[in-house]
Simulated assay, not measured.
Amino acid sequence: MKAVYGYPHPVLGILSLGDTTGYDIKKMVAEGAFSFFSEASYGSIYPALTKLTDEGLVLCRTEAQENRPDKKVYSLTSEGRKALEASLVNAPKPDRNRSEFLAALLFAEAVSPNRITSLIEDRIDHHSAQIEMLERLLGDEDGKAARFVLQYGIAMQQAARKFLQENGDTFEGS
């Protein structure tokens, strides 16, 4: 069996849910529930699909479309499903919490304390928008695991927003 990249490769995971196009994978990762644990651009999705296809983990078929270019639809092979299962055997590494927001706060205090309040207000608005988006996705989701992941994402966003709302005034008067 070929090596799978990371834990688990998001393309294999998405294809385990059903056949789809590279465009739809990108949309799921950029705007959907997958945006909370995966980053991918067209520049990374299509090379991954090509490599996974070359390794026999993914199949690609072309579907004709009227008045549009043909589209490529990808599906998981039995070997791909085995590779996905193999990637799930071991526990994932701990989450990495890297935050441009926290770096901006840290440096804003040294450079421009007045900027901190607007950074916090903007982040509260961001968390509120994320909560709304996840709640919309949750309303359309029937799968138990997907619902759990979405609810987890909502809880994390709510906790971060609550912390900022309750502690954001720490910097007032700095």
Rank of each mutant, 00 (worst) to 15 (best):
M1A: 03
A3V: 11
V4L: 05
P8A: 14
I14E: 00
L17R: 15
D19T: 07
T21Y: 13
Y23W: 15
I25E: 00
G32W: 01
G32I: 00
A33T: 06
S35W: 05
F36N: 10
S38H: 00
S41A: 08
G43Y: 05
S44T: 12
Y46I: 00
L49S: 02
T50Q: 14
T50N: 13
K51T: 12
D54Y: 07
G56D: 04
G56P: 03
L59S: 11
C60H: 00
T62C: 05
A64F: 07
Q65R: 14
E66P: 01
D70S: 03
K72S: 11
K72N: 08
S75T: 15
T77G: 03
S78G: 14
G80I: 01
R81V: 04
V89C: 08
R96V: 15
R98I: 09
R98C: 03
F101T: 08
L102M: 07
E109V: 13
P113C: 06
N114D: 14
I116M: 10
L119E: 13
L119V: 06
I120Q: 11
I120Y: 04
I120P: 02
A129C: 06
Q130A: 12
E135Y: 04
D140A: 15
D142H: 10
K144H: 06
K144I: 10
Y152V: 12
G153S: 02
R161W: 04
R161I: 09
L164Q: 07
G168R: 04
G168M: 02
F171E: 00
F171G: 03
E172K: 10
